[in-house]
């Protein structure tokens, strides 16, 4: 039972990063100066993201719901120790979702209000992906301490520091990378295609750079990432493969093969997540008192069974309809 649930959490996280991530990345892209291409780019992003954004962000809710039903211990520990970054994340989610919708559905489309919506959409996309990274980085540092006595130790220290900052940056870069790759084939306009390709290349570089930064920061702060990393051959192999795939990716980009470009880029991000997973599994969380895994403190079996049934039955409905959604909008 628990394995199935952990699988669902992992799969939701992956889908959230891939689908929701390109959604965030598109927002960040709109922050960059685009000159005369601005309107066209906005249109492409509206068309590409509009039908799917509601569904994209459901993956996050699914993770939260599974956590609080099946792993209440992990859920409550996180929500207490990471109260502030969670709050920041929520503010970002609220502003982002509403700005995107308002921009599209404002009955009177005038340049001034449109500019404000776009700016808010872009800034909150950057803001939210950044905090998402910080939260992920805080999970395994071993600083979360339910027994801490000072405000700083209990609520700030768990997410403070260079390392979470670097992970935040890394996540934002990955999202921009995903979005640019995704958007290349969402438009027929060659100048726009070239623009997205250029962004993808830049983001590609940034991903590698900020990935290095993550290691450097972790090393500087005396955290375990580098040592654990080099002691885990599986992760090492996975990460090496992810990096090598960049070569393959650019071959497909040059050949203008949108399907394979997307598959390879998605595969790379999947590998990065997998590497991270292999490093820490099966611990969901490392606190100052030690690791907190999925297998300790899970909900009673009756609850787990019901949840698995709901998820499996749900998948029976959700995946076909999601597939239908994608087919209707992507078969142009």
């Amino acid at each position: 039972m628990i394995d199935i649930l952990v699988f669902f959490i992992g799969a939701s996280l992956l889908l959230y990063v891939l689908l929701g991530g390109s959604d965030y990345g598109a927002g960040i892209l709109e922050l960059l100066p685009a000159g005369p291409l601005r309107e066209k780019q906005k249109h492409v992003i509206n068309e590409a993201m509009g039908p799917v954004w509601e569904a994209n962000h459901m993956w996050l809710i699914l993770i939260v719901v599974i956590l609080f039903i099946a792993f209440p211990e992990i859920f409550t520990t996180l929500m207490v120790a990471l109260h502030l970054p969670m709050l920041a994340l929520l503010v970002g989610i609220v502003v982002r979702g509403t700005a995107f919708t308002f921009r599209h559905y404002d009955a009177i489309q005038e340049p001034r209000s449109q500019r404000v919506y776009t700016l808010l959409f872009g800034l909150s996309s950057l803001w939210t992906s950044f905090w998402l990274g910080i939260i992920v980085a805080s999970l395994n540092r071993g600083i979360i301490d339910p027994a801490a006595s000072t405000f700083w130790d209990a609520y700030i220290a768990p997410w403070w520091g260079l390392y979470p900052l670097a992970v935040g940056l890394f996540v934002a870069c990955i999202f921009v990378f995903l979005a640019s790759i995704y958007l290349i084939s969402e438009t027929d306009d060659t100048t726009l295609q070239r623009r997205f390709t250029r962004h993808a290349a830049a983001a590609n570089g940034m991903v590698i750079l900020s990935g290095g930064l993550v290691f450097a920061a972790s090393f500087l702060e005396g955290e375990s990432l580098p040592s654990v990393f080099f002691r885990t051959p599986a992760t090492l192999a996975v990460m090496a493969l992810a990096t090598l795939l960049f070569g393959v990716l650019w071959m497909f980009v040059r050949k203008r093969n949108p399907l394979f470009t997307r598959i390879v880029a998605g595969g790379q991000v999947t590998l990065i997540l997998l590497g991270w997973w292999l490093l820490y599994a099966p611990d969901a969380l490392v606190t100052a008192q030690g690791p907190l895994g999925f297998y300790e403190g899970a909900a009673p079996p009756a609850t787990l069974r019901q949840l698995v049934i709901a998820l499996l039955v749900g998948s029976l409905f959700i995946f076909p309809s999601l597939f239908f959604l994608l087919r209707v909008f992507k078969s142009r």
Partner: peptide, 13 residues
């Protein structure tokens, strides 16, 4: 969470 998980999981679906 574990006790009222069922309505929430169906709600999610």
């Amino acid at each position: 969470g574990p006790i009222i998980g069922m309505p929430f999981s169906w709600e999610g679906t």
